[in-house]
Design a protein around this nucleic acid. Structure first.
Lengths: 163, 163
DNA sequence: TATATTTGCGTAACGGGTTACTTAAAAATT
DNA sequence: AATTTTTAAGTAACCCGTTACGCAAATATA
């Protein structure tokens, strides 16, 4: 098989490789769920887990905890509601907020889901060769990109190289 | 600042973190291009580079070299054509194929782009702490997931754990 | 040579996420 | 108390990639 051009691109290929690898997991997980007739999407996992930990949360609280934009959460939540996994009620003290929680259906399904998630985690561990290094590396990049993002760094570098 | 729940999820958070980090690069790059009035998308970079290396390629050749689906390439190419960066001509010996190449406009713009890409690569190197470990780790995961994907592994693990 | 299979690529329908904008409620200021 | 500012969420418009399908051209097989 010919070479992988994204790898050949070296630094310039990093972004696309992160996405490509993420997609490989997502679509394979999707097919797995489909094969066992599970009516859920791969990334609902994080919502299940965070609402299991916190019981009730608002859209903004979830968005901040996951470091995603709020529209991303709104979309997820709406789909999960449509499938009956999430219930929401207006916050008593702030009419702008909705308190979200897992539905009874979701809670009933959790034990079964947890069985699959456990196996999935084991798969991930295998793919990582039972080595946590990739997680450490990601944490480092996440930290660095939070300190100063790609745009800021590139502008600084261009300015410094100029004269 | 509260903890990052995706990190707290450990193995189960890997997929979403890969995507989130990729997006951080993509959207920051987009803003950078916008700020300097560059009329290109971040992921056109890979197309520019591969067509610089190979001169003429078909959709399928590009898709295979980048390990992406062909519809992904078709979309990219169509946009680049619309912006005048790609020219295509029917293959003389096979009427199904189109030979794609960079347009004159693209070639003229390359020197300028390369200046920005060089600075961008330096930014990536910084964000990686000038350490290639993340690239090695990605290569390992890519290799492992190609050998046996997430679904197959999970099914095997479930089967093994059953009895 | 006629028929069947494979291959290239374009499209549709999804799912993911982002930024920009809007509206209404809450909070802060004057 | 009235007005301004901030905050929570929803929506629209985009970009990204995938799988499923369809169709025509090329290749293989009968």
């Amino acid at each position: 098989m010919e070479e992988d051009f994204l790898i050949e691109m070296d630094y310039a290929g990093l972004t696309a490789r992160l996405k490509r690898l993420s997609d490989a997991f997502v679509y394979s997980t999707k097919e797995f769920y489909k094969s066992i007739d599970l009516d859920i999407e791969p990334n609902w996992h994080m919502i299940f887990l965070i609402l299991q930990k916190n019981e009730r949360m608002t859209v903004m609280e979830i968005a901040e905890a996951l470091r995603l934009s709020h529209p991303a959460i709104v979309k997820l939540i709406n789909k999960m509601k449509k499938h009956g996994y999430i219930k929401s009620e207006i916050d008593a003290s702030d009419a702008r907020k909705y308190q979200l929680r897992l539905s009874e259906k979701a809670l009933e399904k959790l034990p079964q889901l947890e069985k699959y998630w456990a196996a999935g985690n084991e798969s991930v561990a295998e793919i990582m060769n039972h080595n946590r290094e990739i997680l450490k590396q990601l944490e480092m990049l996440e930290e660095n990109i939070t300190k100063e993002d790609f745009k800021q760094r590139t502008e600084r570098i261009l300015k410094t190289n100029k004269p």
